[in-house]
């Protein structure tokens, strides 16, 4: 039980073992454990982030839904308004068209009447001349009294 050269041998064994454990056992295992705890922390953080994102997405989707509803109502209202307007426009333009057609027809009627009057005037003038000719065959010269006849014609 005295100290002898064995201590040198035991020192060598001890330090070889310390070196080996430090380099080939402690190092790899602790770095693996560190990596693992980092991965767990990352996973938890990602989960938390996912939850947060889900909340945001839910909020956004409800907002979008709300917007869409509002827009739909707007569009329907606009459509109804536009429909009414179209009907109104159609009525208006139909009225204008009808007025126009009526005016055209009246103008035509007036023209026809004028033409008929003209023709009648002609006929009456001719008849009057013919009558007068019949009556006054001898005295009345058509050429000599042309001015008079024109005057009468225009007065008719």
């Amino acid at each position: 039980m005295n100290v002898n050269a064995t201590i040198i041998g035991q020192l060598i064994t001890f330090w070889l073992l310390v070196w080996f454990v430090m380099k080939y056992v402690w190092g790899p295992i602790t770095s693996m454990m560190d990596a693992r705890s980092k991965r767990i922390a990352d996973g938890l953080a990602a989960g938390e982030r996912g939850k947060h994102e889900l909340e945001l997405a839910a909020k956004r989707s409800s907002e979008v839904l709300h917007d869409a509803k509002q827009k739909t109502t707007e569009i329907i209202a606009q459509g109804e308004k536009r429909g009414a307007q179209v009907v109104e426009d159609a009525k208006h333009s139909a009225k204008i068209e009808a007025d126009r057609i009526i005016a055209g027809a009246q103008a035509e009627i007036r023209q026809e009447v004028n033409r008929a009057k003209e023709a009648l005037r002609q006929h009456v003038a001719e008849l009057a001349v013919a009558g007068a000719e019949q009556i006054l065959r001898k005295e009345i010269d058509a050429n000599a009294h042309a001015d008079l006849l024109e005057k009468i014609k225009s007065e008719l």
Binding site: N4, T6, G9, T13, Y24, I29
Partner: peptide, 30 residues
């Protein structure tokens, strides 16, 4: 050996064996 320069072979042997066991098991785990 004699005196200070004697070596306790049993101590060295079993010290080395236990050290080797630790190294072997450590390596296996890694």
């Amino acid at each position: 050996g004699h005196g200070f320069w004697s070596l306790n072979l049993d101590t060295l042997l079993f010290g080395a064996l236990t050290a080797l066991l630790i190294a072997y098991v450590g390596r296996r785990v890694v």
